[in-house]
Design a protein around this nucleic acid. Structure first.
Length: 514
RNA sequence: CGGGACGUAGCGCAGUUUGGUAGCGCGCUUGGUUCGGGACCAAGAGGUCGCGGGUUCAAAUCCCGCCGUCCCGACCA
């Protein structure tokens, strides 16, 4: 495999210098993805896709555990379907790819769209699947006995974005979308909150990203939803990232697609709906939450490779012995269910291998050399533990090496990974705490964002227009109206709106956002 | 879609002002010496200079158009 230039600082721009460039550099160095020939679309490379696959597995298990099943609906949506729900249609109108023809033909050696093949009705490439799914559900639901209908699909969607960033916003992306039908509003609302909790649990316990669960303001709601719930994470630059949404759709889509059922009393009713989704954007969240200037840092639960073993030897005699031991160690760790990479490439300095695997985010490295064979020990190195909190660049790059008796080391890897998983969440939590502030005046608000910003907990009673005013003046938006149990102790209670001074029931989270 | 910058070998760049037919570093291949934090020596391979047109005896270089990337705005669930 071709490696990028490994001299100097790994080709990674320091976070402190240019966060956007750092983000792109990490993606490149960790070999996660690249821009494709198609505008706004990316190629997810094996290492990046492996992370997504792990996310999928974790999420899918949780969906199944909460009673959902998977299905697949078409990529194409008849234009007339998309326009059935007025607000929904308006919300997506500006970013739809449309298929209008079904055939090409060759004219003078040039392949062109055959004008004769124009479709009677254009097909929209799904920006989301509510409309086609509800049209389908119509045929599946007759009785309250058919409810609830709990279906998820893993799919790609297309939203023709003007400005794209790898993983965070691309024209085509991968996601899952759950679409459920319920007999009562209460049940549907419970589902909406349940799936939000699933996302929050996944974000915190698997991604090690602390999130705030909340509601979107009407202006930020999903097109066609009565309520949009979200989880919001904070990236290392203090900006917010919406990491998942769960929508209560009421009877809007049931009405526009005429999906009714007979209840136990024999009365015809429209069903109540939810939809919820997370996307490959989560890979971006992962990068921006944990990684550093040497590259990607992955929580062990999402790391495609848990442990890399780097053998060290000077001559053939040592090589044979060291590789034999390395093979044994790899075998024993694999038997524990861990994914282990033995990097036995020749002609590459051990140090070069260290940097490469650190850039790719492998949590634990084991170095095995002649000295370890003598002592019966292994050298353990953790991805984000420095030898000392150094001032110089060299010191910041050097990881702490721990020499542990072999048997003890082997038994200790799994607990070590668990510890690292926990430490990453703690680190992210600490950063969020540091960059969150309860704010009561506009002057303080302005200063907070001048100083780098973060999450501002402010009282709010403004209108949608006043939200836009805040966005213009400070580049901030209301990320969410936090659910009651999400509000820190010092942010409880009523107060007065930071902009208008009107009475406010609770604080909201304002931040700059991706 | 507006403003700016950029596009030359896998990656990073020089060369463009002043036109003369392409170079450097890293990576890659082969051989040897190396190997506990990014090795060294030697010999090699690799380029439609983003795409299309124009000017010219001659274009990476000048002109026009287009495409793409990045940054800033607008837009955005």
């Amino acid at each position: 495999m071709t490696q990028p230039n490994l001299t100097k600082n790994d080709g990674i721009t320091p976070r402190s210098q240019d966060y956007s460039q750092w983000y792109l550099d990490v993606i490149k160095r960790a070999d996660l993805a690249e821009h494709s020939a198609v505008r706004g679309c990316m190629v997810i490379k094996p290492h990046g896709y492996a992370i997504w696959e792990k996310m999928q597995r974790e999420l899918d298990d949780r969906f199944k555990a909460t009673g959902h099943v998977n299905a697949y609906f078409p990529l194409f949506i008849p234009l007339s379907y998309l326009t059935r729900e007025e607000k929904h249609a308006a919300g997506f109108a500006k970013e739809c790819a449309v298929v209008t023809h079904h055939r090409l033909k060759s004219i003078d050696g040039k392949v062109v769209v055959d004008p004769e093949s124009k479709l009677e009705e254009p097909l929209v490439i799904r920006p989301t699947s509510e409309t086609i799914i509800w049209d389908t559900y119509k045929g599946w639901i007759q009785s309250y006995r058919d409810l609830p209908l709990l279906i998820n699909q893993w799919a790609n969607v297309v939203r023709w974005e003007m400005r794209t960033r790898l993983f965070l916003r691309t024209a085509e992306f991968l996601w899952q979308e759950g679409h459920t039908a319920h007999a009562t509003e209460k049940e549907a609302l419970e589902e909406t909150y349940r799936m939000l909790d699933v996302y929050a649990d996944f974000a915190e316990n698997i991604m090690a990203v602390p999130v705030i669960r909340g509601k979107k303001t009407p202006g930020e709601r999903f097109a066609g939803a009565l309520e949009t719930l979200c989880i919001e994470g904070m990236m290392q630059d203090g900006k917010a990232l919406q990491m998942g949404t769960s929508h209560y759709l009421g009877q809007n889509f049931a009405k526009s697609s005429d999906v009714t059922f007979l209840n136990a009393a024999g009365q015809r009713e429209y069903v109540y709906a939810t939809s919820w989704g997370v996307s490959t954007r989560l890979v971006g969240a992962l990068i921006m939450t944990h990684s550093d200037d040497t590259g990607l840092i992955l929580p062990p639960k999402l790391a495609p490779i848990h442990v890399v073993i780097v053998p060290i030897f000077k001559n053939d005699a040592e090589k044979i012995k060291v590789l034999e031991e390395a093979g044994k160690v790899a075998g024993e760790l694999k038997a524990q269910g861990l994914v282990v990479k033995l990097d036995d490439r020749e002609g590459i300095m051990p140090g070069a291998k260290y940097y490469e695997w650190e850039a790719k985010g492998v949590p634990v490295r084991i170095e095995i050399g002649p000295k370890d064979l003598e002592k019966g020990s292994l050298c353990l190195v953790r991805r984000f533990v420095l030898e000392k909190e150094g001032e110089t660049e060299q010191e910041q790059r050097k990881r702490k090496k721990t020499f542990v008796p072999c048997a003890e080391a082997l038994a200790g890897i799994k607990p070590l990974l668990d510890t690292m998983q926990r430490e990453l969440l703690e680190r992210a939590h600490l950063l969020r705490t540091k960059r969150s502030r309860v704010i009561n005046s506009l002057a303080e608000f302005e200063q907070f964002f001048k100083d780098g910003g973060g999450f501002a907990w402010v009282h709010w009673a403004g209108t949608h227009e006043q939200e836009e005013e805040m966005a213009k003046r400070f580049e901030t938006t209301i990320r969410c109206i936090p659910l009651p149990d999400q509000i820190p102790a010092d942010a409880h209670g009523t107060g007065s709106c930071i902009l208008t001074g009107q009475p406010s029931a609770q604080r909201v989270v304002m931040a700059r956002a991706y």
